[in-house]
């Protein structure tokens, strides 16, 4: 260690800094000034926040013309790092051949990473703006198709954002 240039605390600091007191006073002054500044707090339940299109809230399924866009390919389920998604496919007479007979997202597992949305070949699962997620039980935290399907009109912001930036 002999040839290592040391840069100890004592060498870095001036005398006044080394006795601490003036620096402590400076720090205290800073926090005192901060006390007089206006606060940033939003009074949440009364004042609500409307997220931008880039916000990643609860993942939802896009409902278009009364049907889900989803073809139950299971890629979201495969890519999900938290294994939150379960998809079971079934056959339909529509052009898309298959649809999700069962689509469940376990919101207690979901980490809102948005991989499902990124991997989706059909733009069928997107992250919504819904950030208020409260459940009374573990079972309630598993959302089925009836809770996941959201009409495409309510998801315009996100779809716009995806097309523009992703």
């Amino acid at each position: 260690m002999a040839n290592v240039k040391t840069n100890t605390e004592a060498q870095r600091l001036t005398f006044w800094e080394r006795i601490y007191l003036p620096e402590i006073a400076r720090g205290m002054g800073l926090t005192f000034k901060q006390m007089l500044q206006p606060t940033f707090t939003r009074q949440y339940p009364e004042e609500r926040w409307e997220p931008e299109g880039s916000y990643r809230g609860r993942p939802v399924l896009v409902l278009e013309d009364g049907k889900e866009r989803c073809v139950a390919c299971g890629l979201c389920s495969r890519v999900c790092p938290a294994l939150a998604i379960e998809v079971r496919a079934a056959e339909t007479t529509d052009d898309k051949e298959r649809y999700p007979e069962k689509f469940e997202i376990n919101m207690l597992r979901c980490i809102y990473c948005g991989f499902c949305e990124e991997v989706c070949p059909e733009e069928a699962i997107v992250m919504s703006k819904d950030y208020e997620l409260v459940f009374g039980s573990q079972e309630e935290g598993i959302l089925g198709k009836e809770k996941l399907l959201v009409p495409v009109a309510q998801l315009r912001d996100r779809l716009e954002f995806l097309r523009q930036w992703k």
Binding site: V71, C73, K96, P121
Partner: peptide, 10 residues
């Protein structure tokens, strides 16, 4: 076709 998402072979 780009059927991989709905194809059993995928």
């Amino acid at each position: 076709p780009l059927d991989c998402p709905i194809c059993d072979e995928a």
